[in-house]
Design a protein around this nucleic acid. Structure first.
Length: 553
RNA sequence: GCGCCCGUAGCUCAGUGGAUAGAGCGUCGGACUUCGAAUCCGCAGGUCAUGGGUUCAAAUCCCAUCGGGCGCUCCA
């Protein structure tokens, strides 16, 4: 319905100034009540090209709209150059009908037009349980995936497993040494760098997988593989409750694809990439190592692909991984990375460009750090020392819905302080309950209404009903929901959805305290229909956030 | 030193060219014999880090400075 208003404005602008100067503009719900039901600032965008005062332009546009306005009661041009709209009854009733008819589809669109998009996120090294910082990236990637899927994109969610190289090998040694220690065997010189309960758990189940006689350094590869599987959750005996997959599952996050780095070595992809770069004269040999000339493509310095010692770098396999993504035919690639990987992007872009791929199709969202506190005490985070708060622990303490909501209230590019004590204390008053309560409350109203003979599904909408200003405000907020979704997709900022919900729910709760919904009058039915529409929006939005919409709480 | 992000209410954070700068938590004070008080209403709290500039209009854009975080590995 808002689209109609936008079209009307656009037509008037074209009529007045021509299509060429039509700026991108939006329609907003203004803060004050005396600024109309909806408002637009198109005139500001036209002021530059037309070299006129915004207010004069707004007047001209408004005049051209007054001709065809069966949906609009009044148009006002105000102060610096706003055009405010006071909508008519037909508009409100049409809107109500529109949302009610679309139901679970309300807010969905096809702006993606079936474009294939790959979202890679979390991708934490399988060397230990995932922690709180990963959780933040996980929710951001997950919600972005949900929102884009609802907007007509064909989304694949992928987790890249770094199961090759020194890090996982070090895990293997850590487990082996733990095994030696508990069985009083003389330890090796390579003790591995990971400590923690999970290392003990894995070593405890090692003998059930590998015959004790074969548990030694000669079989470090097998031990490593077993350890990685345990950490990931593919081998459930060792860490049934704290594996990466279990932590993500309990955090309501799923993946379509778990992509193995090791596979890229095994099938020759990594070697092939170096060969291909070599063919394109983007490689040099120096000091016994093989370098990619990334400075030719805008990076600060050249990067090593193959070390002096002969082993390939993580960078080399990462190029292969990204090339693999392109080859799988995705139009859009989105990576959610920790902000500490910021300096890594130029070299990946350089490599993709050198290999003839369009690096602009790769978008990276950098998620800033999470600093953990317990009250005023910072919590030390050291994965290697086994000293950290895992995502699973946090979710068990605070709850999936609350943690997800909390992470989604912050912009991904702001660092945030997560006070565990506060989060636990707040779990009673967490904003997420504010939102969920609204949903439960409407359900409860419906239950009560039913005892009074009002069945929401059987009520007929009466177009003669005149909405109160609060009711119009409520409807207006429901009507901008699709705009919010569109905005999130365009800017990659899923946190806007929680803010939207808090605002919507605030209007609802205020309305509820001021207005008796289920009364003795015939208008009861019309109010119930409005509640139904709010409930639809709440449900749809909470679904996109991966947060439950309870009927009771 | 260079690059990226940040600096907004006591705390945690929204707002990133436009109408009186917002929310949650925290303080204090009010509202349930009637649809859910996990709610609502009110009070208090701001030189939007600082200084300059651009603009009809700046928390928002540009420059400088100060402060904080991260990165600048033949680590991943």
């Amino acid at each position: 319905m808002i689209d109609k208003l936008i079209d009307l404005i656009a037509d008037a602008v074209k009529d007045y100034a021509g299509e060429a100067v039509l700026p991108t503009f939006s329609v907003t719900v203004p803060a004050g009540e005396d600024h109309g039901d909806f408002s637009t600032g198109v005139a500001f965008g036209l002021a530059g090209p037309l070299k006129m005062a915004p207010h004069d332009i707004a007047s001209e546009v408004a005049v051209r709209m007054r001709a065809h306005t069966d949906l609009i009661d009044r148009i006002e041009v105000v102060k610096p150059g706003y055009i405010n709209f006071i909508m008519g009854r037909a508009f409100w009733h049409g809107s109500l009908r529109h949302i009610a008819e679309r139901q679970t589809d309300y807010g969905k669109s096809d702006v993606g037009r079936g474009k294939k998009v790959l979202i890679e996120f979390v991708s934490a090294n399988p060397t230990g349980p995932i922690h709180v910082g990963h959780g933040r990236g996980a929710v951001i990637g997950d919600v972005l995936a949900r929102v884009m899927a609802a907007s007509g994109y064909e989304v694949t969610r992928e987790y890249y497993i770094n199961d090759a190289g020194n890090q996982v090998l070090s895990l293997g040694y850590s487990v082996l040494n733990e095994y030696y220690k508990t069985n009083n065997i003389k330890p090796l010189s390579n003790t591995g760098e990971y400590r923690g309960d999970y290392v003990v758990s894995i070593s405890g189940t090692l003998a059930s997988m590998i015959p004790p006689a074969e548990i030694n350094e000669q079989n470090i590869k097998r031990i490593t593989e077993f350890s990685v599987k345990s950490v990931l959750g593919d081998e459930t005996r060792a860490l049934p409750n704290s594996s990466i997959k279990e932590a993500l599952r309990s955090f309501n996050i799923t993946f379509d694809n778990w992509f193995s780095e090791k596979k890229l070595y095994d099938d020759g992809s990594v070697a092939g990439i170096i060969e291909e770069l070599n063919k394109r004269h983007a490689v040099k040999q120096e000091e016994g190592a093989t370098w990619f000339l990334s400075t030719l493509y805008g990076d600060e310095k050249d990067r090593v692909l193959k070390k002096q010692a002969g082993e390939l770098t993580y960078f080399a396999s990462d190029i292969a991984y990204h090339v693999n993504k392109y080859k799988r035919g995705y139009n859009g690639l989105i990576n959610i990375w920790g902000a500490d990987h910021h300096g890594y992007l130029p070299r990946i872009r350089a490599a993709l460009t050198a290999l003839g791929y369009d690096a602009d199709r790769l978008i990276v969202l950098f998620v800033q750090m999470v600093r953990l506190m317990r009250g005023d005490r910072p919590v030390a985070m050291s994965k290697r020392a086994g000293e950290y708060v895992t995502l699973k622990e946090l979710v068990d303490e605070v709850g999936t819905d609350a943690v997800r909501f909390f992470f989604l209230q912050r912009s991904h590019e702001s660092q945030l302080v997560f006070d565990i004590d506060l989060a636990k204390k707040q779990s009673q008053e967490n904003p997420v309950y504010y939102v969920q309560y609204a949903h439960a409350r409407i359900s409860s109203i419906f239950g009560y209404a039913l005892t009074k003979g009002w069945n929401v599904d059987a009520i007929e909408q009466r177009d003669s009903y005149v909405f109160t200003s609060q009711e119009k405000r409520l409807l207006a907020q429901c009507l901008i929901y699709p705009e919010v979704i569109r905005d999130i997709v365009a800017k990659g900022e899923p946190h806007k959805l929680t803010y939207y919900l808090v605002e919507l729910v605030g209007i609802l709760h205020r309305y509820y305290t001021d207005t008796r919904v289920v009364g003795d009058d015939q208008d009861t039915g019309q109010r119930l229909l409005l509640m139904n529409v709010v409930k639809i929006v709440l449900k749809n939005a909470l679904d996109l956030l991966g947060i439950s919409a309870p009927e009771k709480m």
